[in-house]
Structure formats: C-alpha cells, structure tokens
Design a binder for these strands. Structure first.
Lengths: 213, 213
DNA sequence: CCATTTTTCAACCTTACGGTGGATGGAAGA
DNA sequence: TCTTCCATCCACCGTAAGGTTGAAAAATGG
C-alpha cells in the first residue's frame, strides 16, 4: 500500500508516519502540509490511499479531494478530522469519501481503517457515525424546508430582510414569512438568536468562526 | 529535562514523543489525553516542563494550567495551539505561561522553545506574536468602553435591549444608547451583525462555537 | 481642581421586525 | 384525483430597534 499524507501539522504528520513505519504492508510515499502541494504530490506519486486533514490553510480539505479525484482517480481518500470540528463534519458528508477517522482515535484504529479501505470497504469512525445519527435525530434544523435553510444562512451573515429578498429575487414579504417560520420552528425569539444559532452550526460565512479577524 | 505531554490527539502525542526521543537532554516521563488525567500525571511526575494543548475535551487547557500551578509549582508550561484557534489565543494570554507554540511549527522550533523555557526564558511563536500585535493594532473592539463591551457580550447571547437593561439594572434607554455607540464604533448595521461579530471573537456563551449541538 | 470621558436617563421620530390571517399556484405523493 | 406541503405575495398591526439630540451625574486623570 502506498500512502500520501496531507496535514498542516508537522507533528501529526510525524505521528502518522511513525505509526505506519511499523507496518510492512504500508509505505508513506509522500506528504504535504497544504492543498496546493498536496495536489502535486498526489499527481506525482499516484498513491493507493491518501489521508487528508479536513482543515487545511486556505481551502477546505474537501475541495482538495474533489480536485484530486480527477488527477488521481484510483486513489481512495480518508478524511482526518478532529472531534471539535464536528460542526463541519455534516457538511463534509456531501463529498463522498472512503473513510473518516478522528485524530483523537488510537493509532490502531487508523491502521484498521487503512486496511479496510484498501479492501474497497468504507470506514467511518463510530464516534462520527454517532454524531451524524444524533444530529439527524434531534437537530431542529431538520424541520426546516430547503428554502428556509437558505434564508437561515443569510440570517447567519447578518443580512436584513430586504437584502435577503434582493439576493433571492423575491419580495420582502416572502422573506418575512420565512423568518417567522424559522423562528417558530426553532423556538427562537428573533433573527439575532437565529443568526447565532445558525452560526454556531457552521453556517454563515465559511470558516469565519475560526478565521475571524 | 523531564517532560509531560497533554494532548487529546494520540497522533500529536506520538509525533512529539518521536521528536523528543532523538534528544538526549530530554525525556518524556508522562502523557495524558485529557485534563483530569493530566493533573494527576503532573502531580505524580512533577516534571520540569509540560506541553499542554489549548483545546482539550471538557475544559479549556488554560483552566488545567491554572489548577496545575498549585500542585506542580516548579513546572513551566508551554501551550500548544493550532493556527485556526487564533480566536482563542487572545483569551489565552490572560493566563501567563512560559511558552506558546503552534502545531504548524516545525519540530526544531518546538525543541528550540523547550530549551529556551528550560533556561528560564519565555518563548512565543513569532506567528502568534504577530497575530497578537495585529489584533491589538486594528481591533475595533479596542475602541469600546468597558460598559459597551459588557453590553456587546449580552448582544452575543441574543438578548433584547429590555433583557439586557434588566440584567444590568439600568433603563432600556441606556442600553439603546450603548448599542448605538457600539454599532457606530464597529461600523455595523444592526444588533445581529454585532452579535455575530462578537460571537466570532469568542464572546457569547463560552465555547459554544465548538461545543454547539 | 478642572477637563474629559463615561455612564446614565429622556424625548422624538423613522424604520425594521415579528405576529396574524389570508390567498394563490405548483409540485409531490397517496 | 385529491390532499398536503411548499413557496410566493399581500395587508394590518403592535412593538422593538436604531438615529438624533440633549443633558446631568459620576468617574477618571492630569
């Protein structure tokens, strides 16, 4: 198995490399600490499996995977993520990948995942699986219609009803209606609470929770 | 030098350990992956230096350091943090520690920091230093008076003027005045934008950005 | 002690916001 | 086909929010 690692933390890189060096059926053929280099490495080495961090400087790890699919079609991708990133995980599920592992996981679990994926199976960390299930069970945003979700995202950007109306090419009346529905469904008092709620769930300007100022 | 490592990511732990094993003047005497165990380890081994992750499950790494000061007084503390946590860094500066390093840093930099701290000096990653300087230079919240900051925190909790007034034992007029001042000073349109702004800076309900849902 | 800033309170006005009720057309599904 | 849900638009109403101006304690700092 030829592996490529993409993570912006040298220590994590080192850690994984050490874990893998102990296995004789695996080999790390290349590493990268940002997406740009990562793409290049994937193209050059054409590995069997790539471990990619979800959070990379500049662009999301998922965008890199999307691009990498084209230049390294045979490569399977395993997403590395942290438990504290769970707000992003749901969004991450949109792009299909072969595996999800938590950085909090034990090294053995990582090896396990790699071997499973090598056998053309999918590995999703049980903790992540549980997060997804729980989220879909009692997440009030599930009650929102697609259009309401769209409006909620604009709310999370601090926009007024009028601006949202212009952005969506409808009248302000319509937006007011949607906002009312959102507030009722989520049991919130006003748009500010809705904005904060949405923002805390990872909506709003991408990455602003971490990139803020 | 006797070191203790506290980080909830086994891979990072492994990475640091490998880096340090190559040095003959250093020795890792204990590791922990959460605050509770961390305190115990610090008490038992009484190390010279401890590397502590800023984000730990449950409580903030800083709270652990605060507690650890009492049970391991001679121990110097180096905070490990990620660049994406920079919203937390400012808050972290309140608790005085001997060193700050980024996980994105090269291993040599970490060794360098440890050696400096061992010589009773302080090491702050130049990138972090720059973040702090930039923040203090053009951070609009610096223009706010203490009272306005207080009100801003309530805004970040999604509270109405009336509720804030009650909480602070003043009239609603006063809060309206403060809110107007805040909006003008920060160049924002309405309370929602103010709330989002404050929230992204780490105000609002503690840790809700990451613990949400 | 004086100047400045901060905090507080107040009146007035305009606008945005949120609640309520109703109406329409379309799409999806039983 | 009929029903349900969704998205859209409209009107009315009350209240909250934000801008403006002014002013008077209170604290700060030289």
């Amino acid at each position: 198995m030829r592996l490529v690692l993409i993570d912006d933390h040298p220590l994590v890189l080192q850690g994984i490399e050490v874990v893998i060096q102990g296995q004789k059926d695996m080999e790390v053929v290349g590493t990268a600490s940002c997406g740009e280099v990562g793409i290049k490495v994937l193209q050059d080495f054409q590995p069997d499996i790539a471990l990619v961090d979800l959070r990379l400087p500049g662009e999301y790890g998922l965008d890199i995977i999307k691009r990498a699919r084209k230049i390294a079609p045979q490569c399977r991708f395993i997403v590395l993520t942290s438990y504290s990133d769970r707000a992003d995980i749901k969004r991450a599920m949109s792009e299909k990948v072969e595996g999800y592992i938590l950085k909090e996981a034990m090294p053995e679990e990582i090896l396990n995942a790699i071997r499973l994926v090598d056998k053309n199976r999918t590995y999703i960390d049980p903790v992540i699986m549980q997060i997804l299930l729980n989220q879909e069970k009692d997440d009030p945003t599930e009650q929102l219609t697609p259009r309401e979700m769209e409006v909620l995202e604009f709310l999370a950007m601090g926009m007024s009803n009028r601006n949202i109306a212009e952005a969506l090419f409808v009248t302000e009346y319509t937006i007011k209606k949607h906002v009312s529905q959102i507030l009722e469904k989520l049991d919130l008092a006003d748009r500010t609470q809705a904005a904060l709620y949405a923002f805390s769930k990872g909506l709003g300007p991408p990455g602003s929770a971490s990139i803020a100022n």
